[in-house]
Deep mutational scan, measured.
Amino acid sequence: RPRTAFTQNQIEVLENVFRVNCYPGIDIREDLAQKLNLEEDRIQIWFQNRRAKLKR
Results as ranks from 00 to 15, higher is better:
residue 39 E to A: 09
residue 20 V to Y: 03
residue 46 W to N: 07
residue 1 R to L: 07
residue 16 N to C: 06
residue 14 L to T: 05
residue 33 A to L: 00
residue 41 D to N: 15
residue 43 I to L: 04
residue 47 F to C: 01
residue 46 W to C: 00
residue 18 F to L: 05
residue 48 Q to V: 11
residue 55 K to Q: 01
residue 36 L to S: 01
residue 15 E to V: 01
residue 37 N to V: 04
residue 47 F to K: 06
residue 46 W to V: 00
residue 39 E to S: 12
residue 7 T to E: 06
residue 38 L to D: 03
residue 12 E to D: 14
residue 23 Y to A: 12
residue 19 R to Y: 03
residue 13 V to F: 06
residue 4 T to Q: 15
residue 28 I to T: 09
residue 30 E to A: 11
residue 11 I to T: 09
residue 51 R to Y: 01
residue 28 I to K: 01
residue 12 E to P: 00
residue 35 K to V: 02
residue 27 D to M: 10
residue 22 C to W: 11
residue 10 Q to T: 04
residue 48 Q to H: 07
residue 6 F to H: 01
residue 4 T to L: 10
residue 5 A to E: 15
residue 37 N to E: 10
residue 27 D to T: 10
residue 42 R to D: 06
residue 29 R to G: 02
residue 19 R to K: 10
residue 35 K to G: 03
residue 19 R to E: 07
residue 2 P to M: 15
residue 24 P to W: 00
residue 5 A to W: 08
residue 18 F to D: 02
residue 7 T to A: 11
residue 46 W to M: 00
residue 36 L to I: 11
residue 3 R to I: 15
residue 18 F to V: 00
residue 40 E to Y: 04
residue 18 F to T: 01
residue 36 L to E: 00
residue 27 D to F: 14
residue 34 Q to K: 10
residue 29 R to T: 14
residue 25 G to K: 13
residue 30 E to R: 14
residue 9 N to Q: 06
residue 1 R to T: 05
residue 41 D to Y: 12
residue 18 F to W: 08
residue 7 T to V: 03
residue 2 P to K: 15
residue 20 V to H: 11
residue 25 G to S: 10
residue 5 A to H: 14
residue 36 L to G: 01
residue 54 L to V: 10
residue 20 V to P: 01
residue 9 N to E: 14
residue 5 A to C: 15
residue 23 Y to K: 08
residue 13 V to P: 03
residue 6 F to T: 01
residue 21 N to C: 02
residue 8 Q to P: 10
residue 51 R to N: 10
residue 44 Q to P: 00
residue 22 C to T: 12
residue 32 L to N: 00
residue 55 K to Y: 05
residue 51 R to L: 02
residue 53 K to F: 07
residue 50 R to A: 08
residue 7 T to W: 01
residue 25 G to T: 11
residue 1 R to Y: 15
residue 49 N to A: 14
residue 3 R to C: 05
residue 5 A to N: 15
residue 20 V to D: 13
residue 9 N to Y: 12
residue 45 I to C: 14
residue 39 E to F: 03
residue 27 D to S: 14
residue 2 P to T: 13
residue 56 R to W: 15
residue 16 N to Y: 04
residue 31 D to R: 11
residue 44 Q to T: 12
residue 3 R to F: 15
residue 46 W to L: 00
residue 53 K to D: 11
residue 24 P to A: 02
residue 12 E to Q: 14
residue 45 I to V: 11
residue 49 N to W: 05
residue 30 E to L: 13
residue 26 I to C: 08
residue 20 V to W: 05
residue 43 I to H: 04
residue 53 K to M: 11
residue 6 F to K: 02
residue 44 Q to C: 12
residue 20 V to A: 11
residue 37 N to L: 07
residue 26 I to L: 14
residue 21 N to W: 03
residue 2 P to L: 15
residue 21 N to H: 04
residue 2 P to E: 15
residue 29 R to C: 12
residue 39 E to T: 12
residue 11 I to M: 03
residue 8 Q to N: 07
residue 41 D to K: 09
residue 36 L to Y: 05
residue 35 K to P: 00
residue 42 R to Y: 12
residue 33 A to I: 02
residue 45 I to M: 11
residue 30 E to G: 10
residue 21 N to G: 08
residue 55 K to T: 01
residue 32 L to T: 05
residue 41 D to I: 11
residue 4 T to K: 13
residue 50 R to E: 14
residue 20 V to Q: 13
residue 28 I to Y: 07
residue 30 E to C: 11
residue 5 A to F: 15
residue 33 A to C: 09
residue 17 V to E: 06
residue 18 F to I: 07
residue 52 A to W: 05
residue 15 E to N: 08
residue 3 R to S: 09
residue 26 I to A: 11
residue 37 N to D: 09
residue 15 E to Q: 02
residue 48 Q to I: 08
residue 6 F to E: 06
residue 24 P to I: 03
residue 35 K to Q: 08
residue 54 L to H: 10
residue 42 R to W: 13
residue 45 I to R: 12
residue 3 R to P: 11
residue 26 I to K: 15
residue 49 N to Q: 10
residue 49 N to K: 10
residue 21 N to A: 00
residue 13 V to S: 08
residue 56 R to D: 15
residue 1 R to G: 05
residue 11 I to F: 03
residue 25 G to F: 04
residue 55 K to M: 09
residue 50 R to N: 06
residue 41 D to E: 13
residue 36 L to W: 10
residue 24 P to D: 03
residue 46 W to K: 00
residue 31 D to K: 15
residue 20 V to N: 14
residue 3 R to V: 14
residue 2 P to Q: 15
residue 18 F to H: 03
residue 45 I to Q: 13
residue 30 E to P: 01
residue 47 F to A: 02
residue 26 I to N: 14
residue 5 A to I: 14
residue 38 L to A: 09
residue 44 Q to I: 13
residue 45 I to N: 14
residue 54 L to A: 07
residue 37 N to R: 10
residue 32 L to D: 01
residue 19 R to L: 01
residue 42 R to A: 13
residue 44 Q to D: 12
residue 33 A to Q: 15
residue 50 R to W: 03
residue 48 Q to F: 03
residue 23 Y to E: 12
residue 27 D to P: 10
residue 13 V to T: 10
residue 55 K to I: 13
residue 29 R to E: 00
residue 53 K to Y: 05
residue 32 L to I: 06
residue 22 C to P: 13
residue 38 L to N: 04
residue 36 L to H: 02
residue 6 F to V: 09
residue 23 Y to G: 06
residue 29 R to P: 02
residue 55 K to V: 03
residue 29 R to H: 00
residue 22 C to K: 07
residue 1 R to S: 05
residue 46 W to E: 02
residue 3 R to M: 14
residue 50 R to C: 03
residue 27 D to G: 11
residue 56 R to V: 09
residue 40 E to L: 07
residue 53 K to P: 06
residue 8 Q to V: 13
residue 18 F to E: 01
residue 34 Q to V: 05
residue 39 E to N: 08
residue 29 R to K: 02
residue 12 E to V: 10
residue 47 F to P: 00
residue 50 R to K: 06
residue 6 F to Y: 11
residue 34 Q to W: 10
residue 54 L to P: 14
residue 11 I to C: 03
residue 20 V to M: 10
residue 34 Q to R: 13
residue 55 K to D: 06
residue 33 A to N: 03
residue 23 Y to T: 10
residue 9 N to R: 11
residue 55 K to A: 05
residue 26 I to F: 10
residue 33 A to H: 04
residue 27 D to R: 13
residue 29 R to D: 02
residue 8 Q to I: 05
residue 9 N to C: 07
residue 13 V to D: 02
residue 40 E to Q: 11
